[in-house]
Design a protein around this nucleic acid. Structure first.
Lengths: 197, 197
DNA sequence: GTACAAAACAAACACTCGTTTGGTTTGTAC
DNA sequence: GTACAAACCAAACGAGTGTTTGTTTTGTAC
């Protein structure tokens, strides 16, 4: 891992890097990686195409930066939410709510993490996968702490819950059920389910 | 809805249209819609780019054809599977297994339906959404027949289950747990869940 | 106020994109 | 065997792609 080169001087106040990241996140989310051109992005920040390459070596590196920020934001939201709870069940529910709120209403960055597949950007794919995995580690712990009925596979539980949450991106419409409501229902479906035979 | 124009003559035996669909499905699945060029597709069937436009008016129309075939295959698999069961619970499980097997191992076509978003192809987006919705209607019926504990929201149950199944495309690796095993575990998680308080 | 690097501009590069147009081959029905 | 359309080829169209290179502006530390 390369050390961040210590800059000879500090960044300038009129630096438009944050703006580039914001617009890239917005467009990658709405149109996908391949569906968004470099010119789409720079047009949104009133720049010329070549200027982007002062900040990033490639378009894929820009995606990686957006991705990293997305993971950072979800992680922060979830970590904050569970820190206020002690009971494992409550912690799980709080995590689901925070995850879904970050995913559905808060941040374009977070949605990019769900929408864009690592395979879309081969040169940074390994990094994107690592970012995703780091985040999922958080969930491994949450599920590990649960008291479960005998024979319940914890990995399956985690994958089912996260999958259902992530997929909600495809059918969620704002103004109807809130992310919080959806998340609560999903958790509840795991405790009063089909009913015993 | 336009009537299928009655052809002046029957299609020829050396028609390569099926081959085009197969390769388009394979590539759309692996690289996405925007990530796959017309030249990628015709190269795979040893054709020239322009020749594709004898069969389809646009690249998006080709996607729509692949999409329709994908929905047809999943629907057929699921319909066949549930027709052999009577008990609502067993029918649901059979549907999950068939859905996941079609999605994970059987058909590139089916995976395109999950991977490619309607918004990627604006001119046919409405048609793609309609195809998806038609298929989901099948699941509405399956969930409707279930006997459930009080207060369980059937729509949430359907969305959670289908979401978890569809998302498995992102983490599934063949050679490990089979689609059948995964589907069974997910259904089971709905009946012996977190355990009552 | 001056030195200097941060952050951009200006203009192109080589290539790829989806698509169109006019002509050619070839299987098939009669 | 001949007519004819199905199914393609050949060649290009204009626009867009990610990226590079040389130059210029401008905020900031001293």
């Amino acid at each position: 891992m390369p050390l961040a080169a210590r800059p000879a001087r500090l960044p300038r106040a009129d630096n438009r890097l944050p703006l580039i990241l914001d617009e890239a996140a917005r467009l990658f989310r709405a149109q996908g990686f391949h569906g968004t051109s470099v010119r789409d992005i720079v047009r949104a920040v009133d720049m010329l195409p070549g200027s982007l390459y002062y900040h990033f070596p490639t378009k894929e590196a820009l995606l990686a930066a957006v991705y990293a920020e997305g993971v950072r934001r979800i992680s922060e939201a979830v970590t904050g939410a569970i820190s206020r709870k002690r009971d494992p069940r409550e912690r799980l529910e709080a995590a689901c709510i925070a995850h879904l709120e970050a995913l559905l209403q808060e941040s374009d960055y977070a949605q990019v993490v769900i929408r864009v597949l690592p395979a879309d950007a081969p040169s940074v794919a390994a990094e994107l996968v690592r970012l995703r995995d780091d985040y999922e580690t958080l969930w491994v712990g949450l599920v590990q702490d649960l008291r479960l009925a005998r024979g319940v596979d914890r990995r399956s539980l985690r994958l089912m819950l996260l999958g259902a949450l992530n997929w909600s991106q495809t059918w969620y419409r704002k103004g109807r059920d809130s992310p919080r409501t959806i998340a609560k229902r999903f958790v509840q479906l795991l405790q009063e389910p089909l009913g015993r035979e």
